[in-house]
Design a protein around this nucleic acid. Structure first.
Lengths: 246, 246
DNA sequence: GTTGGTAATTATCATTTGATTATTAAAGCG
DNA sequence: CGCTTTAATAATCAAATGATAATTACCAAC
């Protein structure tokens, strides 16, 4: 879009003039390899969260105060950098304790659920996580699918199992989790996720005290869900309605 | 991303070979101006909903079975086409009757709300609407802001007014709508919107019978909301936490 | 048929943009 | 201080991409 060129140049100029160097070669800051790499990754997370994965490497470099080719000394190509961002945001923020907490039957179920949901929320309800997850979803990237499947296998199934145990219903080995059951469990985190969307995608105001919101949701879930789970799951759920070309 | 070039070529080849013309000039279909324009707009809506507004004009043209320069005989530039897509999806789908229905006090409030929400849902819960709205939100485009403000002014304020009237509370002129009130009204459509996100962004299964879902939500809203609205609105809502650069 | 108007195409331009190559220079070490 | 290492830059490439100019050919009107 050559029309954009103008504003782009203006932007460049503005940023440049903020640095000391007025004209000659850019002051060359020579950092240890690991440090520079960490710096790039950190800024890339923010950058791709803002602009999506089609954001330009030149703009990213500019924000870092480095030249664009330098990125390629740390990451073989743009996609490698994106992969690293995924790794950092979606994989590294996973807390193995969550599964431990959820299944620790020395604690009451409600306390376990509240603890998990509150901590999980703190990990995903960030500008970066929400927007990167949305971007990857919109672009039909595999990371998204993988993450959702992982959550289902590691977390939601455990919650269903615990609720069943609590209410004296058959274990998952004897009766697999129904759509309805997973749905109900999903719903809690979905409403949390949506708070992030409203805040960081639509710029709307959102509740301040998230811990309280979560506690309410978990209580509501534990009041209503067991009964709904027990009901014969005449599936009101449709098949995967994904457009053919995504 | 020159790496993409390969798959692009393959794609082109595949599509080309699907058409009859093996080598010579493409069979030239000469349509009336209005008809071609409508065809372009229709496909552009789908196209941008899939790929975002950074989608390439060449790919769009290819899908239409026309050459890329032809787009520029109907729209002066890419942005004009995008504007037209907005117009078509966000403005033209607005139904003025909604405001009439909501304020028609000859009907019971619950029936009015159910009617509005069900019809509104039918209008926005589409692949195109949901994804375009998200893309425009993520890119911080103004259309998004404008739409949300418009909804608040035209719809949500009316719902609040009607609930107040129903419960014998002071009218909006005497006591402006609190954050909490708008929040509660918002929540119903938010949960509907989120169904669309799950379906068309994350490829998850969603409830089939939306009318039933909406009816439930409206009932729940009318059961709980009036009391919550009446409560002193000690705002648990934070200020606009939008990143500085969007 | 012939022909005029214009829808549509082909060829091409100017930028943009991911990526590479050849230099330059900052920092650590003896 | 001189030398080595390699982080970082400048210069540049090739493909992609929005947009334009020149040309072609479909269709309706006569």
């Amino acid at each position: 879009m050559p029309r954009r060129q103008l504003s782009l140049l203006v932007h460049k100029q503005r940023v440049r003039s903020a640095r000391p160097a007025p004209r000659p070669t850019r002051t060359r800051r020579r950092l240890p390899r690991a440090e520079r790499e960490a710096q790039i990754v950190k800024e890339a997370i923010r950058f791709f969260a803002e602009h999506g994965f089609k954001g330009r490497t030149r703009d990213l470099a500019e924000r870092l105060g480095i030249t664009q080719p330098l990125l390629y000394r740390y990451f073989s190509n743009k996609n490698a950098l994106i992969e690293r961002v995924y790794e950092e945001v979606f994989v590294a923020r996973w807390n193995p304790d969550w599964e431990v907490w959820l299944t620790d039957r020395t604690q009451p179920l409600q306390a376990r659920l509240v603890r998990f949901y509150q901590d999980y929320t703190r990990s995903i309800l960030t500008y970066e996580w929400i927007r990167l997850f949305l971007f990857s979803g919109l672009e039909g990237l595999d990371i998204n699918r993988r993450y959702l499947r992982f959550m289902r296998e590691r977390i939601w199934s455990k919650v269903v199992a615990e609720v069943r145990f609590e209410t004296g219903r058959p274990p998952l080995e004897r009766e697999p989790a129904s759509e309805t059951e997973v749905e109900l469990v999903w719903a809690v985190i979905a409403s949390i996720f949506y708070i992030g969307v409203r805040r960081w995608v639509f710029g709307l105001r959102v509740p301040e005290d998230l811990d309280a919101v979560i506690e309410d949701k978990v209580k509501a879930f534990l009041e209503g869900a067991p009964a709904a789970m027990a009901a014969p799951a005449k599936s009101r759920i449709s098949k995967r309605p994904r457009p053919t070309d995504l």
